[in-house]
Design a protein around this nucleic acid. Structure first.
Lengths: 94, 94
DNA sequence: CCTTGATATAAGCATATTCGAATATATTTT
DNA sequence: AAAATATATTCGAATATGCTTATATCAAGG
């Protein structure tokens, strides 16, 4: 199987607790940065940094709505599928 | 959705080109470390280190066969499913 | 036992990530 | 235009990763 470099970028982007929570929240629906601050134990600057990483990985994108940016998961089948697999995965064998 | 800490460990383990290639190869069938050295452009020590990370993430395990260790992907549905999703994912929108 | 083949671990260094603090930019409101 | 709101960027310190080299372990054969 050919391993695409993009795959690693996506996996790296998701391989962080805060970023994984961000995409899980965004799968529920579009959110602006301010509302994410209410959901996550992280500063505004930090959330913005994580969103930048997710944007670079092409995992999320946003629409501008006045001064706000409404983020959403582009490629929701991929991201949602990954989360479904993780959720349904049996616990690792002892 | 509840984010399990284990998920991040799994994603981090897979978020590396060499390790992703290792698991892709192991999905094809059990392999010992020596045979992996023929497939990958990495040193024995380096491959062993990567296998250690994959082991800690409970992504792979091995059976001892004399002096050799035959590695395999434990939880193949999870890992295979992740690779399938990545392979089939549409390219990120421009 | 001593050697050899197979694998793992440790030490060291270079590079990358992470996060907080401060600052910058853009938009709306007054 | 100034102030307030929303978000991004920059910088620096701490920490983590990745890789190389060297060394250790461990099982099998002689």
């Amino acid at each position: 199987m050919v391993i695409e470099k993009d795959w690693v970028v996506v996996l790296k982007a998701l391989a962080h607790p805060t970023r994984l929570r961000i995409v899980a929240e965004l799968l529920q629906g579009t959110k602006c940065v301010t509302s994410m601050q209410d959901l996550l134990p992280a500063s505004q600057a930090n959330i913005s940094q994580h969103l930048g990483i997710l944007r670079n990985a092409r995992v999320v994108d946003f629409t501008q709505d006045g001064a706000q940016r409404c983020y959403y998961v582009c490629r929701p089948e991929l991201v949602g599928g990954l989360l479904d697999l993780l959720r349904d995965a049996p616990s690792p064998p002892a």
